[in-house]
Design a binder for these strands. Sequence first.
DNA 1: TCCTACATGTAATTGGTTACATGATTAT
DNA 2: ATAATCATGTAACCAATTACATGTAGGA
Lengths: 181, 181
Amino acid sequence: MALEHAILVSLLEQPGSGYELARRFERSIGRFWTATHQQIYRVLRRMEADGWLVAEEIGQDGRPDKRSFSVADDGRAALIAWLRAPVQPEAVRHELAVKIRGAAFTDDAGRAALIGEVERYRAEHESLLFTYMNGEKRDFPDLEHLDVGERLQHVVLRGGIAYERMLLDWLDDVLDTLRAL
Amino acid sequence: MALEHAILVSLLEQPGSGYELARRFERSIGRFWTATHQQIYRVLRRMEADGWLVAEEIGQDGRPDKRSFSVADDGRAALIAWLRAPVQPEAVRHELAVKIRGAAFTDDAGRAALIGEVERYRAEHESLLFTYMNGEKRDFPDLEHLDVGERLQHVVLRGGIAYERMLLDWLDDVLDTLRAL
DNA sequence: TCCTACATGTAATTGGTTACATGATTAT
DNA sequence: ATAATCATGTAACCAATTACATGTAGGA
């Protein structure tokens, strides 16, 4: 229900094409909201039809034309109204937790395989943490002089960093537990 | 993709009816996988047709009959195979983070409303943390004598507790940031 | 010559939510 | 009376994923 709103925020921060949005969803926005390009194009069409966005055709030589979207007044109003609505309880989908509880029903070889998988998952999230921390240094070098938008982006990034740290600690706990069974 | 597997784990821990499963999904399993009763009944029918589950009809007087499901050999094999597969990257949907970044595009009154909403969200998660901690005391009073299943259930619960603590700390950071804008 | 980046889509399917529906028992 | 709990489902809809599709430019 909130992909529209994530797109509104992103286009208010910086107008752009569907393709550019899809790339942002792979990077910064993707930290807290994921979407594929197919889904983004579909939602963009609907938002344009609803008058939330306006498109500007940009002919490029050498490259395919692109349509750069900006937020219209109706779109901004829709975002502001949504900001006042209560946060919806989130659908939790934590596959690894299901697997850990499932480990009670497999044999030693299966448990060893799960330990390997948890190690791989841990390495992935460790590198994600480093990516976040490098992004923090790169994008917020001077914490004394941030505008409103940057301060809000930074607090969201701090949340991502806190999450990854917590996750790594917990995964160490999980590994100790699995190894001690 | 993994609701089937969450159901398999739950029914291996304890056989039960669709209704009982739905209640478990509201409680313990719901901490890491949510599902409504409608969805559970639909998936149960498919799993039974695939030979993953067997049902036992239990006539009850005074109450409607119920069908108690147990995991069949094929179901157990499907779970064991799935445990060895890599954990899928999770779809991230963090609505509150979208709202926080959206706060750059609203006025003081809108920001004040968002602060109120973050406070409400924080109170919800604080009470969830207390629920987890009470559940821990109740279900794992003697940490020295846990069987394999209990040790795995406990490490997953510790993950939930670590998450909620991290979230509360971050929400305090968010509130400080929003109030200082 | 092949891969990556740029740029945009359609079609089919699956997964999940919301609304609707029924009916008995037990507790207040 | 009435609300809550037990117990099971159907139907319609919406959101999201996966597979398929097309074409150019520039670098290795």
